[in-house]
Nucleic acid binder design. Structure first.
Length: 574
RNA sequence: GCGCCCGUAGCUCAGCGGAUCAGAGCAUCUGACUUCGGAUCAGAGGGUCGGGGGUUCGAGUCCCUCCGGGCGCGCCA
């Protein structure tokens, strides 16, 4: 049952599959360079080498379209170019077994068959770290998301933003960034004051005041009255007799704190924890907003007109100049936001990603213009917009409109479908696509539900390993086990998927697309279920039992890592 | 009017730095349990990738245009 492994082979194995792409890429790059020096590729600059996994393994383990990309520059038919490259590829003694030129000019690479088997011990060796890499090189990076006004509970769209931000942050830390999650509390503007005013009015009404009404542009929901009741229960009627401005200030503060606490609690049960809660009002009272305005006036990127101060955002590609300070002397939201981003920049973040809802896309141009006006490069800040969320319930689509007052709360969704399903569903679509969240499906404890499908695969892995223990089968050491019995098509397909995890994570990070991992999880689960059907683990001859148990161990590591990144639990039993 | 997003199978959506890209899940139909969890799996039907131009040897994929849907365009945050 022990492999034919000399120590040297084991070393080679341990370096194994995560480096397969890198190794192959450098082999190709070397061939390109040699071909160029031989005068066969007369181009100034060689393109980056892209490796794809072909749709069918009859096209090899990996393929590349470099020849197709180069053909025009070289001025030769793609297949000829491919042939020239292929002739410089070194195949002897290495990873690479064979290269084909196929179709219009693809290079198809066939690797030594053992490369897939080498994946298993490597995964088991790396364990919780399988899938990590270091393209971020420890750069300090911030993801800012949710950042709701503290004037109400979090709703469904906040949930989508929270899931995207949280998982993107985790993905980025997996690829080597030093990542911080930050929540910007918009607690300084007129909205918060109006909210305080609304709560204050309810409070006074509870004390029998029939004169005071909630302002028309105030907040009307039941939660406002609930909050007033809580304050009444805790503080009694003593707030009634405070001087008017002090009373409003008090209610604004109490209301803000209460909503913030509630939002924080909702996020916690959603599995989202922020490193920093940054208060907008801090920017006001520390003079950072005044400073930004002064700087912009001094460097000529702001000017006074019509009694207001304007950001010259048109100088940086925006459609119009934007007010920074109103006629009444109050700074606008943008002024605060620019001060905030300058603050982030000063805190040393090498890159910042803001995740905004669809209603904010109009602010991208002015914000980017603003930071440039402050001397910060436009690409230092990335703004990711996610699209609208609708809910499907009992076959009907629920609008979730704020205007109609029927907003659905994130808490309600978590209550109904649970944290795991909620997170998973929010991440099933690309941020650019509108998302229809099917509550009925998310709630089902059945195979149709993708979350259960994936989690069930994990539970099934656990079940096999438990059953093995029941039967007193000793768990094999993957590094010492001959894995060559893994030859069934289902086993090979599973191995290929396992080998791709690091690349999937890398792509999800580079493209800022967390939804790739929910899809990957579904694919991996599907591969595992197919393997389970085709290949019995226990009760076979010992060599096969050992090899397949190793495969199961590796699958469990990979799937658990995916679920960990998604913030979805990986149950041993269901 | 301007801007952003979307339009791919009956439904919800992947694929969009061109080729090896016509895909997944659900729904529908048909099959598979003395055995590690059938909460599973296999198979089938189903799409001129919104329309039309263009670039290209080659276009869901890039460009233009039109149509349809969603959302934004305050000295609100």
């Amino acid at each position: 049952m022990v492999a034919d492994s000399s120590p040297r082979d084991l070393v080679a194995r341990a370096r194994g599959s995560a480096m397969v792409r890198e190794t192959l890429t450098s082999v190709i790059e070397r061939a390109l360079e040699e071909a160029r020096q031989a005068g066969e590729l007369p181009v100034a600059q060689l393109p980056p080498v892209e490796l794809d996994v072909p749709p069918s393994n009859q096209f090899g383990d990996f393929s590349s379209n470099v020849a197709l990309v180069l053909a025009r520059q070289v001025g030769a038919p793609p297949r000829d170019v491919a042939q020239r490259i292929a002739s410089h590829l070194v195949t002897n003694g290495g990873l690479l077994q064979r290269v084909d030129v196929a179709g219009p000019g693809f290079l198809n690479f066939y690797l030594k068959p053992t490369w897939l088997h080498d994946v298993v011990p490597e995964i088991c060796l790396q364990g919780d770290d399988y899938g990590r890499c270091n393209i971020g090189q420890g750069q300090l990076l911030q993801v800012e998301f949710v950042s709701a006004n503290p004037t109400g509970p979090l709703s469904v769209p906040h949930g989508r933003g929270a899931a995207i931000g949280d998982v993107l942050a985790r993905i980025l830390s997996w690829v080597g960034y030093e990542t911080r999650r930050e929540f910007y509390i918009n607690d300084a503007g007129g909205q918060v004051a109006r909210f305080g005013e609304s709560v204050e009015a309810c409070y006074l009404q509870l004390l029998g005041d029939t004169e005071t009404k909630v302002p028309d542009d105030g907040y009307q929901g039941d939660y406002v009255r609930d909050l007033a009741r809580q304050i009444l229960a805790r503080e009694g009627d003593r707030l009634r007799d405070l001087p008017a401005d002090e009373r409003l200030e008090t209610f604004t503060r109490l209301a803000r704190d209460a909503m913030l606490a509630q939002q924080r609690e909702t996020l916690a049960r959603f599995g989202v924890h922020f490193d920093i809660w940054f208060s907008e009002s801090e920017l006001h009272y520390t003079g950072q907003i005044d400073e930004v305005i002064r700087v912009l006036l001094e460097n000529g990127n702001a000017y006074e007109s019509e009694g207001a101060i304007w950001l010259r955002s048109t100088a940086f590609g925006d459609d119009g100049d934007r007010p920074l300070v109103r006629g009444n002397g109050q700074p606008t939201y943008i002024a605060a936001d620019l001060a905030y981003h300058l603050n982030k920049h000063r805190r040393g973040f090498q890159r910042v990603i803001d995740i905004w809802g669809p209603d904010h896309h109009g602010y991208i141009a002015r914000t980017k213009a603003g930071i440039q006006a402050l001397g910060i490069p436009a690409d230092w800040l990335e703004i990711l917009i996610f699209q609208h969320v609708s809910l499907r319930k009992d076959g009907e689509v629920v609008a979730g409109s704020k205007r109609l007052g029927n907003i659905v709360l994130l808490d309600e969704v978590i209550d109904e479908v649970g944290k795991d399903a909620a997170r998973f569903f929010f991440l099933m679509r690309g941020a650019n696509s509108p998302l229809e969240f099917d509550l009925d499906l998310a709630k089902q404890e059945a195979l149709e539900n993708p979350v259960y499908y994936v989690q069930y695969a994990h539970a099934r892995m656990g079940s096999i390993l438990r059953e093995a223990a029941e039967r007193c089968v000793v768990l094999p050491d993957p590094a010492q086990t001959d894995l060559s019995p893994l030859q069934h098509e289902s086993e090979l397909a599973l191995l290929r998927h396992l080998a791709e995890l690091p690349e999937e994570i890398r792509q999800a990070a580079i493209l800022r697309e967390p939804h790739r991992l929910t899809r990957y999880g579904q694919e991996l689960a599907a591969c595992f279920h197919a393997f389970y059907r085709d290949c019995r683990v226990l009760g076979e001859v010992p060599e096969i039992v050992a090899a397949r148990l190793c495969l199961v161990l590796a699958c469990r590591v990979a799937l658990r890592n995916v679920l960990t990144i998604l913030g979805v639990s990986a149950p041993e039993r269901m």
